[in-house]
Design a protein around this nucleic acid. Sequence first.
DNA 1: TATTGTTATACTCTATAACTATA
DNA 2: TATAGTTATAGAGTATAACAATA
Lengths: 151, 151
Amino acid sequence: MSEHVLHDNGVGIRGFDRSLPMALMRAREAVMRHFRPSLAEHDLTEQQWRVLRALEDADTALSVGELAERTYLLGPSLSRMLALLDDRGLIARSSVPGDARRADIRITATGIELVAAIAPRSEAAYEHIEGRLGPGDLEQLYVLLDKVGRL
Amino acid sequence: MSEHVLHDNGVGIRGFDRSLPMALMRAREAVMRHFRPSLAEHDLTEQQWRVLRALEDADTALSVGELAERTYLLGPSLSRMLALLDDRGLIARSSVPGDARRADIRITATGIELVAAIAPRSEAAYEHIEGRLGPGDLEQLYVLLDKVGRL
DNA sequence: TATTGTTATACTCTATAACTATA
DNA sequence: TATAGTTATAGAGTATAACAATA
């Protein structure tokens, strides 16, 4: 029998400690706690960071809609954010030939530099996590999270 | 060799798909997507839900500070939220004998009823997840998340 | 003096609806 | 008519500082 047993506390709902959303949030908090100061230092919110990372990872221009999906941001939030990131020269927009409604968003060289400047702290956090979990466990965690993410 | 290989994309940072915070967020999104309508139906934000669940799980009164730690909310956010939940009769405050600075927060019968009313939808979401992962994987996921959460 | 909690303030994000331009 | 993106608006959370009351 496992130490992690689902228990009934009388109102037909799992204990707080057995709530998957809370466990996910706790884990995310633990990771971000080490990383957030680095973002603040460079005047980036977590959401802005997600946008830059998504663009940098895409390696190609993305439409606003595609970007919204990948970053879990709503259109209006993203729209305003892109204006700010554009002002800071971190992203650039261009029109799409053949569909004047669409906008192509890409990360600029300045944006890539900023991401690269923050990256070392991110790597340090990962090494810390790997040190605690071991590479096998981390791998297994990714597999399980991917499964849950595909609900 | 695993299919999940950390790769270098030229700026010294992991790919977006190999970002642990993003994987955690995706998983949480997938779970909450099924659950959020139920909260909205009862006029609760995710944060308010966390507060009610934490109180209900504690099975005893908590100080504002303890509650803030358990729900990952800041004092000022929590302070305002407690006033709203108090107005709705979902929580109650009482003074602590021996320390007039502290406030004891507890969930009311009405609050417990509300949690119980929402619980079935939560359970359905869990059954869906268990159906996809299998109980063993879900258990393993909890173990790994707990490890990460203890950073 | 330090701690507990609230209030003040500015900013950001969430969420929905309305709007513009284009397809 | 539908789609892509922006603008408008209201509400809520984040974050820091300042504050009151108490220890």
